[in-house]
């Protein structure tokens, strides 16, 4: 990934930076995983949006690459308490992917290659708040960080930004995901420090 750690000192932006409560700043990119890293060949990769009435919209890798891309620069906040500021990504806005999707569902269950899931309200995926990203720092996204493509929802704790994303299932009822069924907060707003159920 070519990222050189700058250490904890010596960057002017560290001074006076406002972080969510309980977070500390890092300059490397820690890897967290709940299992083995899946390897998905691009010719077999597919992304899908499944609507609440059983219709499925699919994109191959080539089709994803052909869509208009954006280059968001965002701050990341992990529930393990590290925050990383100003990360540069390239990917497709979910507004673009949802453009032809007819749905009135309020809930989304994101699912990944390897079996991971996470849930969030559909409105948190729209209006410029979320992307399917495939580049980090100008390079293709490494498998350790969720490549070939991951969800990026930077306004929520990073466990919501599912690595190795495979699809989004739209639901009329909320369906808690992998961590949300094991004590993590259902929504996960870092600015309200919603780490655990009951926070």
């Amino acid at each position: 990934m070519g990222f050189v750690s700058r250490g904890f000192r010596g960057r002017p932006r560290d001074e006076g930076v406002k972080l969510p409560p309980g977070q500390y700043l890092v300059h490397d990119f820690p890897v967290l995983s709940a299992g083995p890293t899946p390897r998905i060949p691009l010719d077999r990769w597919e992304f899908a949006i499944d609507t609440e009435d059983g219709r499925t919209h699919r994109w191959s890798w080539q089709e994803l690459m052909a869509l208009p891309s954006e280059t968001p620069t965002v701050d990341l906040h992990c529930v393990t308490k590290w925050s990383k500021l100003g990360t540069a990504w390239k990917g497709v806005s979910l507004d673009t992917l949802f453009a032809d999707v007819e749905s009135s569902a309020e809930y989304a269950l994101v699912y990944s290659y390897g079996g991971y899931t996470t849930n969030l309200p559909v409105e948190d995926l729209l209006d410029g708040k979320a992307w399917i990203v495939y580049q980090f720092d100008g390079e293709e996204l490494a498998a350790a960080h969720g490549g070939p493509a991951r969800l990026l929802v930077p306004h929520l704790y990073l466990w919501k930004s599912a690595k190795w994303v495979q699809g989004i299932r739209l639901l009329n009822e909320d369906w808690p995901g992998f961590w949300e069924t094991a004590g993590y907060h259902n929504y996960g707003d870092p600015w309200r420090e919603q780490r655990y159920q009951g926070d």
Partner: peptide, 15 residues
Amino acid sequence: YGPAPGLVARCPACD
């Protein structure tokens, strides 16, 4: 797998 707060223990045979 994973540092705290979340630990995931997987089967060595089937993952």
